[in-house]
């Protein structure tokens, strides 16, 4: 009896090893990593907000409203980074045919879309007192809006096929083709004469006060940890959905 069980388990693990990596091994590890990321996100958010609101000084030009950038810039960065990560996993899935790669990509999309919304809404609320308008069809704003639509299109397409494999492949194509939009967003402030200001943070040099920059970077790491935690959570949910039959899962979630 014990022998049969271990044999079937080996067979199961072997089958999964090549096509998906082993979810039985991945599932608990991802759970630990997820918890760690939630904790890091919470701690860094508290630290970042404290520095942002109680240490960083009033901006000489913008007054207090500049404090929106502590979340606006990290959200905009994450929206771009998550899209690139999604494109990477989608490409990996298309080339290698690995199911877990598509699942990674699906797990990232909603958080990326959420980051794009946060970037657009906070930017709009910052723009009104600073530029005098909530919205302008400026290259950076428009390309960020397109990024949001790409996320929505990706998720809609992935969900629209009864055959999950077809949905995986079709949505992966959107992820890959849409990735061209990310460098367009990033360089838009250089390529076009945009109302949106150029980058204040560049590798090696920065035009911000040190405490302001610190608050923004701490919040950026908090957003990273949050995004990883949310994506891992979604990934584990997908594993539960797809592995209903597996005995290892019954043990893991009981």
């Amino acid at each position: 009896m014990a022998r049969t069980e271990s044999q079937s388990h080996d067979k199961f693990a072997g089958r999964w090893f090549w096509r998906y990596a082993s979810p039985a091994a991945f599932f608990p590890l991802a759970g630990k990593l997820e918890k760690l990321c939630w904790v890091i996100a919470a701690v860094l958010t508290a630290v970042g907000l404290y520095i942002g609101f109680f240490v960083a000084p009033t901006d000489a030009q913008q007054g207090e409203v500049y404090r929106v950038i502590f979340i606006h810039v990290p959200a905009a960065w994450m929206a771009m980074v998550i899209y690139l990560a999604m494109a990477f996993w989608s490409g990996t899935g298309l080339v290698l045919g690995t199911r877990l790669s598509f699942m990674m990509s699906h797990a990232l999309a909603p958080t990326g879309a959420m980051m794009a919304v946060v970037a657009l809404v906070t930017g709009s609320l910052w723009g009104r007192p600073t530029w005098g308008t909530y919205w302008v069809w400026d290259a950076r704003l428009t390309s960020t809006l397109i990024l949001f639509f790409l996320y929505v299109g990706y998720m809609a397409l992935a969900a629209s096929f009864d055959d999950k494999k077809k949905g995986d492949r079709a949505s992966a194509l959107i992820a890959l083709v849409g990735a061209i939009n990310v460098p367009i967003i990033y360089f838009s402030v250089k390529w076009w004469n945009t109302l949106h200001q150029g980058s204040s943070v560049r590798p090696g040099s920065s035009s911000m006060a040190a405490t302001m920059l610190t608050a923004m970077m701490v919040m950026t790491f908090a957003f990273w940890a949050y995004a990883i935690a949310a994506a891992l959570h979604r990934l584990r949910t997908q594993v539960i959905e797809r592995e209903r039959e597996a005995s290892w899962l019954k043990e893991a979630i009981k």
């Binding site: 207090e64 409203v65 929106v68 959200a75 906070t122 949050y226």
Partner: peptide, 23 residues
Amino acid sequence: DMGGRGFFVWGSYGALAIAVIAE
């Protein structure tokens, strides 16, 4: 009050909070 910009600053942080809670 945020120097008279409270609506925009707290509106932004509120929007983030709503988005995170919804997710």
